[in-house]
Design a protein around this nucleic acid. Sequence first.
DNA 1: CACGAATAGATAGTGCAGCTATCGATATCA
DNA 2: TGATATCGATAGCTGCACTATCTATTCGTG
Lengths: 210, 210
Amino acid sequence: MRIGELSRLSGVTVPTIKYYLREGLLPSGERTSPNQAQYGEVHLQRLKLVRAMLDVGKLSVTAAREVLAAIDSPGSALHGVLGVAQSAITPRVAASDDDNWKAAEDLVTGLVAEKGWHVKPTNPAWQAVIQIMATSRDLGQDDLAALLGDYADAAERLAAAELAAIGRRSDVDSQVESAVLGTVLGDPLMAAVRQLAREDASYRSMVGEA
Amino acid sequence: MRIGELSRLSGVTVPTIKYYLREGLLPSGERTSPNQAQYGEVHLQRLKLVRAMLDVGKLSVTAAREVLAAIDSPGSALHGVLGVAQSAITPRVAASDDDNWKAAEDLVTGLVAEKGWHVKPTNPAWQAVIQIMATSRDLGQDDLAALLGDYADAAERLAAAELAAIGRRSDVDSQVESAVLGTVLGDPLMAAVRQLAREDASYRSMVGEA
DNA sequence: CACGAATAGATAGTGCAGCTATCGATATCA
DNA sequence: TGATATCGATAGCTGCACTATCTATTCGTG
């Protein structure tokens, strides 16, 4: 198919598709002449994936490019791709050195030790958790600290369930794509489901109090 | 204190503080003359809260303003404020009407019914979940659908724990602030903790396979 | 009480991200 | 054969979150 049909089928405008081509989010089609190219099912799928990452996953174009590169890298072993995908979607946060930060650091280190998690110190999520705990403490709200264990339990269970689901897929390529999608779509899904659960919990407590 | 000290104590530049004043994220100080105002502890706390919402919670200025308005509204009952805060942080997503969307809609409706959740159909999180399920289906990945129940369980447990923590606070104002912070900081926290858990799970499965 | 630094409020400008518009040289198709 | 589509390049647009500058005050220290 030509770019126009790709646009129709995907709902993405032609200029935007061109933009994605320039940005390396989409491989160029097969050349049939200097200014004609053919696109196939692969391109349509990839385009949908790109839109999912940008729209639903809220990734930046740069982060999406990194994730795609990881997916496409030749010897894409599951563990490695996951690491790259996770790095790409975690915003980097600079460490601080005030007391609050140090206390938060200890808190998180303690959690990981307690859970027996095997996590490399280079994982940017580490700093992200610390930042959030330090912020909550700075705001005089140590409630989050008390809940950290609950968050960890929930995360642990989910990770296990996800990995089990991925393991049920046969070929490695499919596993990789599934894992990446779980990583990219998982966060917004959790956020949205949490809101439903919270509304219910809040409702229950209100009724219970009455 | 004057605006300069507020800036020093908070680490936010004076022009940015002025911007927040203009945008209604920060109440103006007490006038002492036409071009002088005094700020207090309240302003410092509010400023920290604003930075937390923007930096850590990734809220837009508009969303932050809505959340603050809800906090400040006179008869701010917990349930109501939570609803507003949640609405403010959930990106609106337009419904579609293709088959994928309808299937996803049924899936989510089924989940909520099964869990017995009491959720208003106006909750934007509803559409958000549907969009994600429809997207995942469109990409040929129904793994997420299989995991939806696990997400819901995790969300339910967390919501209960959070509400219990909030209930332990004495005054209503403190409860409201705690709840809002849990809502705003909870999502990024969950996302980051999930990444730690995933790295551990991924590592375990790799070692187990060896 | 003089004078340099700070402040309020207003208006305009900056930088970045993610597109969008236009153009000229081809290519396709009714 | 002429209307429409495509390619690649370059420039422009929009929204957001600031940031800079300016004027008329006011503070605060010598």
